[in-house]
Design a protein around this nucleic acid. Structure first.
Lengths: 136, 136
DNA sequence: TATTGTTATACTCTATAACTATA
DNA sequence: TATAGTTATAGAGTATAACAATA
């Protein structure tokens, strides 16, 4: 094993890069990117959530969510609605079409994960998940 | 656990993003980026390796290594030398300074990993490594 | 024909900084 | 003062495409 291969960070990068490319292909026919997929997922699960809270939940900057929400809105998957009591904020809600699109994306993502993680036992997969979550 | 949190890919992205940012800070005082660090490491461990083989080893494109090698060469850490018998290729070799710089970087990277993985047992850490390697 | 190195260009995700309008 | 949203810009890593020189 080389110097790099002994490092968790290096393997994390290789694994993530592989995953990201594969997911991109899996989501392309659905018409979503990794980013729009993440945001749509959060909005569907949290109706009325604000952009700032989406950003906090995903661990990214607000400026990034704006563009992603613009994209999802243009596609008709989510809508910005006023927040009663705070005229600065927008409440994000998925449209019926957006919810259907998410189901499509979730199916594609599940197939993609099953394919990439075929070499792992269910235990290893669960362990990978729990360990990754403790890193960030 | 949300829809996204159940996905390995999502956690991989969060973990990698965190790792990358932390490593960047750790390597900044050393004067290396993730990319130059990786390439320098491969060159030190494989004296005389060509750029194409570095690219293959790291799983990136040749075009990316050119720029990285340019950078390392400008810093005086590696040198391009002719390959006897193939005038297309360059043999990459680390300078004495490059080897010292790599030692510095390895120490910084090790400290960075220990810090980020403090919550994991040695077993979990080893398991994470082996599982990630089976993904790509 | 295939490969090495190279250059130019672009894409994805993310971050920083500065701004407005509200609170 | 602090927060929500916005815009512009930039950075890091990667990819694609085309080319000259060489194999």
């Amino acid at each position: 094993m080389s110097l790099l291969e002994r490092q968790v960070g290096y393997n994390l990068r290789r694994g993530y890069t592989r995953f990201a490319a594969h997911l991109r292909e899996a989501l392309a026919p659905v018409g979503l990117s990794q980013r729009t997929f993440s945001v749509l997922s959060v909005v569907v699960s949290n109706p009325g959530i604000t952009q700032s809270d989406v950003a906090r939940g995903l661990g990214i900057e607000r400026s990034g969510t704006v563009v992603t929400v613009d994209e999802l809105e243009a596609q008709g998957h989510i809508a910005r609605t006023p927040v009663t009591g705070d005229r600065r904020a927008y409440a994000l809600r998925a449209t019926e079409q957006g919810r259907a699109k998410l189901d499509e994306a979730l199916a594609a993502a599940a197939a993609h994960e099953d394919e990439l993680l075929a070499a792992l036992t269910p235990d290893e997969r669960a362990m990978l998940l729990s360990v990754l979550r403790r890193i960030y």
